[in-house]
Amino acid sequence: MALIECNNLSLGYEGKPIVTGLGFEVNEGDYLCIIGENGSGKSTLMKALLGHKCVISGEITFDNSIDRKEIGYLPQQTVIQKDFPASVREIVLSGCLNGCGFKPFYSASQKKTATETMKKLGIDDLANRCYRELSGGQQQRVLLARALCATKKLLILDEPVAGLDPIVTQNLYSLIKEINQNGITVIMVSHDMNAALEHASHILHIGHTPLFFGKKEDYLKSDICKIFSVQGGDAL
């Protein structure tokens, strides 16, 4: 059975639908990229996958083999209070929390994971800095490191490269690719068409109704891809 399956799913807020007729499935090891214009409901879909109450009709079925505790998540926007005192290391480590169960403290191996993830994202030298004093891109990398620490089976990313410089962006894409090749399923929202087409195995293109779902190769042949690219897909 597929890891995640939905059929004829409608999402929206307070009874008003935003996307209808959504159907797709995600299998273990897939790299699904979700694309679509602003306001088409991509973030709403991410929230629905994480169990928020955005589902109007239809159902999202998760396979029994996956537990909420094995999901890593990077939201599009994180509202964190301006004056919150927290060091980078504390935040990244908090991503490991879902692996703790009832244990009160982090294990040595979890601390090691956190340190290695910080190294991979180039923020190990910021480990003891205060989060609120970092630049926007640095903050994004910290939250990304936290998401990676929380991931055991599924990684959900909502525009992870927003605000990152080109070098870090490239590193990030290869890091996600590497994670994916290690058997972790990735679902990513992105406006970066080139990267989506380069790395993903599947594409879900949504408007108010799903415009396309399928393998990347098929998407490249579809009309919607051509229209979207011509209309400036690069810039999206």
């Binding site: 537990d67 505790k69 999901i71 998540y73 509202v79 964190i80 935040i91 908090s94 929390l97 879902n98």
Partner: peptide
């Protein structure tokens, strides 16, 4: 407080993330 220190930090810092990842 000592036993739940890490959990208290997580729900204080970012309740949305903590909830989404199974806390």
């Amino acid at each position: 407080f000592i036993l739940f220190y890490n959990k208290i930090f997580a729900v204080t810092f970012d309740e949305g993330f903590a909830g989404a990842t199974g806390t």
